[in-house]
Design a protein around this nucleic acid. Structure first.
Lengths: 210, 210
DNA sequence: CCATGAAATGAGAGTAGCTGTCAAAAACAT
DNA sequence: ATGTTTTTGACAGCTACTCTCATTTCATGG
């Protein structure tokens, strides 16, 4: 297998050879996928081609990613968002905490991205919006992020994480934010995302403590 | 092909033989699918089995329904909701109009359902929540319903249907309502849906006119 | 009633995503 | 170097879905 185009992160240096190889394979598959998609588009790219270019077998591709869509959709941002949310002062209105946490997560996602360039990030967002299968998978993962949000919201408002109100607020917000991204991509990413997010949150109510 | 278990609606009587047959086939496929799912579950039911029981070829199944999920997911309620929304007085706050329109649509969906029993409706909702593929498809159709909502909301608020605020409000609402349904099904449909919907809308902000 | 055109169907081959199995190869431990 | 465990590749198989083409079924005008 050829060396992955994207450099292995420093954090991985101390791992054993086995672990390092796994990271390499993972990245080789992703790089192969992205380059093929750039050349031919998502649908025209088969898993066989991906495996060939990454110089691994099809089995290995599916061992690393449960489905084709997952190759382009790795959510590393759930944990980030949760952390950022916990950093905000406890007394702050929920909606304000959300605003800052989301702003920061978004900024980090779009700028200092360690293993993909910004251009790759934009392609990713575009695929989320344009390819139905990827969008579907994204929506699925939205409900995971939603549950996470529920926990954070419950903590802050003194409600239970399974409260209808908490869950509805969380999923409503996820829907709203996804639509914001779609709006942004439809406008060719020319508008300022942070401003769009502000406008989005202005439409949403605050979730009051109880 | 055997006669469909569900009776052909009266409204179809005046149609030509060809059209009537098409309706019958459609219903035969759906009935076959539902009975098979009740027996074996969704995943264990193959399109081949469905075709066999409906006494139709596989080609025909795919001619009537673009995907397996679509057999259980026929959205007849988008148009209904739109109509109900238009019936509300123009001066009423948007959120109130939504409350009544959604309540009524939900009531109609769950009670006076012409061609499926209530039990079939509940199975359908349960599939939406429990089977990932069906849920995915449902989420896809949510964005269609969302666009429809955008139009209605734009009309009422004097905004443009492509306004970020309108779109965010619509999709936020869709996310919230979907979560409400999931909550309801998770509690085995024992709680009063209409009350849950009221509580959901209480969490949402109103969309102000401009 | 029949002939002609149009629409619906069935049969079959083919594609791609995905799963599972099993033996070979690579990494690790001793 | 030897034995153990993990990772991999090759292969077979399943199913959803597509496409094509010949055949059947309905509609229509003479």
């Amino acid at each position: 297998m050829t060396t992955a185009r994207t450099p292995v992160p420093e954090a991985a240096r101390h791992l054993g050879l086995r672990e390092r190889k796994k990271l390499k394979t993972r990245m080789a598959i992703r790089d192969a996928t992205y380059s093929l998609i750039r050349e031919q588009g998502y649908d025209a790219t088969t898993v066989e081609q991906i495996a060939d270019r990454a110089e691994v077998s099809q089995s290995t591709v599916f061992r690393y990613f449960p489905a084709k869509e997952d190759i382009v959709l790795t959510d590393e941002y759930d944990a980030l968002l949760e952390g950022l949310l916990r950093e905000r002062p406890a007394g702050e209105p929920v909606r304000e905490s959300l605003r800052w946490a989301i702003r920061k997560a978004m900024t980090m996602a779009l700028t200092d991205n360690p293993d993909h360039g910004q251009e790759e990030m934009l392609l990713r967002v575009r695929l989320m919006v344009e390819v139905p299968q990827v969008r579907s998978r994204l929506m699925e993962s939205m409900s995971v992020t939603g549950r996470l949000l529920c926990r954070a919201l419950a903590e802050r408002t003194g409600r239970h994480e399974n409260d209808l109100e908490v869950r509805v607020y969380a999923m409503g917000l996820m829907g709203a934010l996804l639509e914001t991204m779609i709006y942004w991509v439809e406008g060719d990413c020319r508008e300022d995302v942070l401003e769009l997010i502000d406008r989005t949150l202005a439409v949403c109510a605050d979730l009051p403590r109880r």
